[in-house]
Design a protein around this nucleic acid. Structure first.
Lengths: 219, 219
DNA sequence: ATATACATTTAGGCTAACCTAATTATACTT
DNA sequence: AAGTATAATTAGGTTAGCCTAAATGTATAT
């Protein structure tokens, strides 16, 4: 009933809405899905008639509850597969996205259940993104960008806002991993360069661009 | 370049050829792929023009080396995934086929390599079918149907010829698993009913229909 | 309020993989 | 060798998901 194309549209709408909080525009969808705006208009009409989105012509789309459930389920599967790829198959965190994009479309509720159990019911993927439960519910998260922390704050690195391979590889190269403890030693007022102490050992210096994308939780 | 449809056609041609030894007919393909004969003729022309099969009009098709390599690679992936489903995810051997039919089309050589390693480089799937290596080579097998064994022969149960859920469930119900040692106690001449001793413990009685589909190796 | 820019939709087409119905080829029987 | 049954192919059509080009809507600046 639900094709891969449909799942990808719903997932894209979900993520774009999450980012902006607004209705999702045709052009934004065309951009993220790498198809023409005309194709998006076409497709939107189809999924609107299936009550997966509500559509206001020339204004944009919003997911219905039905559409959101499908989208979140795809996200759940994507993140579980990423956990598997990293924890069981020993892939690096910057190598798993494309493979998970394929695996997320495998259809079998049984498989998802067995996989979830095999992985020990993980609550976050290798990038710190929360994994919704099978009913589509997310745990509450109290993360914030390291940029918002002040001198003297002690926090834990629990996720990334930028998922690009470039950023992930930068962090790997600089030996920063999820779970590390970060203590803010100094913040340069002029350009927001942060000096932090990692795991009570070495000091490291990160630019504003970096600390903006490091998500942390107060310990 | 290679679509799922193409992979399924090549795999079907491979398996039908394996079974009959002859050119594969349009009708046999239509039957196994559950599409019309006209669709098969269409598709065959397409893959023939890509040199994946050699096609003699109205006679049938044969895989080229190029086509065979793709087919065997799909079979390799299918069987590796089945091993994973049974050994790591605790599925039963009669529950994995449909899921593996989807997983076999995931495209990533890296994934196959990692999976193979994760599974400890298995040489056979949960039904005893051999897993070809990444170059498409199969190990030599010296299995034969239990039906061909004579009284007094001691063999090991290493595979099934019939992969139907019915047969697999029959074996499960009768507590016969791959690796079991089978000693032929008696063969009823009239109807080929076999009386065998399993693992030097209980005696079991199997009909001709069953022993025909039990593949064994001399120990 | 109108011009300009940009976003969106409509119209018309394409390709992959299927279909049915009609036609042609092959094989089997007598 | 001809007739009949079966298999295979051809012709023409459908659907999903995409495209480009043209037309229409919306927003912004003057």
């Amino acid at each position: 009933m639900t094709s891969s194309a449909e799942e990808n549209y719903l997932k894209a709408i979900y993520k774009l809405h999450e980012k902006s909080g607004n209705m999702v525009t045709t052009s934004a969808l065309a951009e993220t899905l790498k198809v023409s705006a005309a194709s998006v208009t076409d497709f939107i009409k189809k999924i609107a008639s299936k009550k997966l989105v509500s559509y206001e012509k020339s204004k944009g789309v919003k997911l219905t509850d039905k559409g959101r459930l499908i989208a979140v389920n795809i996200i759940r599967k994507h993140r579980l597969w990423e956990v598997w790829l990293v924890n069981k198959l020993e892939f690096k965190w910057d190598e798993v996205h494309e493979i998970a994009e394929q695996l997320e479309h495998i259809i079998s509720d049984d498989l998802v259940d067995h996989l979830d159990k095999h992985l020990g019911y993980p609550t976050a993927d290798p990038h710190g993104d929360l994994i919704p439960d099978s009913k589509g519910r997310f745990a509450k998260s109290n993360s914030k960008p390291l940029l918002e922390c002040v001198k003297g704050e002690k926090v834990k690195f629990i996720g990334v806002a930028d998922h690009s391979n470039n950023f992930l590889q930068y962090l790997t190269k600089n030996n920063l991993s999820l779970g590390d403890e970060i203590m803010v030693e100094a913040v340069e007022e002029f350009d927001n360069t942060f000096t932090v102490r990692v795991n009570r050992k070495e000091n490291k210096i990160f630019s504003k661009e970096v600390v903006k994308n490091l998500l942390v939780a107060v310990v």
